Simulated assay, not measured.
Amino acid sequence: MLLATLLVGCGFALRGTSEIPAELNPILIQGGDGTATGRALLDRLQGSQVRVTEDPREARAIVRILDETRDSRVAAVDRNGKVLAYDLSLRVTSDAVDAGGTPLVPTQRMTLIRTLDNPDIEVLGKREETEMIYRDMEEEAADRLLLRLGAALR
């Protein structure tokens, strides 16, 4: 009982819960189906008490994923020119408006970067690891979007 009280007091919340005011339910995610971050955001909201709609007329808040871009660049090479590491980046631009189009969260761009070491392994393994890193970044971007939305609406 004491542990539960301490966790609640420190702000701990289970993953999937979000602090979106009830008066903004239901929420529409625009661009969500076309982007991995949008799909991760939908998963997060469906695991919480926030209701998600696909009908723009029913939505009281609209979170828009305006752009999502993946990129990679060489981060390190050895003296022979062999690539030792890549920087993988994910850029997500988003905003949120109410049903009338009034901004709730201004347009924001976030960039997440991870380093992928390039050891001598199979190409297939590198591709799978790269996709795992991008999925992790997309999930983190969704979490950050929810935090920003919750903070802006308090």
Score class of each variant (00 low, 15 high):
M110S: 09
R135L: 10
K126M: 11
L6Q: 03
E68N: 05
L6T: 13
T115E: 11
P26H: 03
A13T: 15
S18I: 02
E19I: 10
S94C: 04
G16K: 09
N118W: 07
P119W: 02
D67S: 10
E58W: 08
I62S: 09
Y134W: 05
D71C: 13
L153H: 09
R57H: 08
L90P: 11
F12N: 13
Y86P: 03
R114A: 10
R79K: 04
I65L: 09
T53C: 09
P56H: 02
I65W: 01
D136H: 00
L124N: 00
K126E: 07
A22L: 05
T93G: 03
R60T: 02
V83E: 11
E138W: 13
L14K: 04
T35H: 00
D136M: 04
E140F: 03
P103Q: 13
D117L: 14
F12R: 13
E139T: 07
T93K: 00
S94D: 09
T69K: 15
T102Q: 11
A40M: 08
A142M: 12
N25T: 01
A40F: 01
A99W: 07
R60S: 03
L42C: 08
E138C: 06
E131K: 15
I20S: 05
T130K: 00
T102N: 10
G125T: 01
Y134V: 06
E129D: 11
P21D: 07
N80I: 05
T5L: 14
L145Y: 08
Y134K: 01
E58M: 11
I62G: 01
A59G: 00
I121F: 05
R114M: 06
L88N: 00
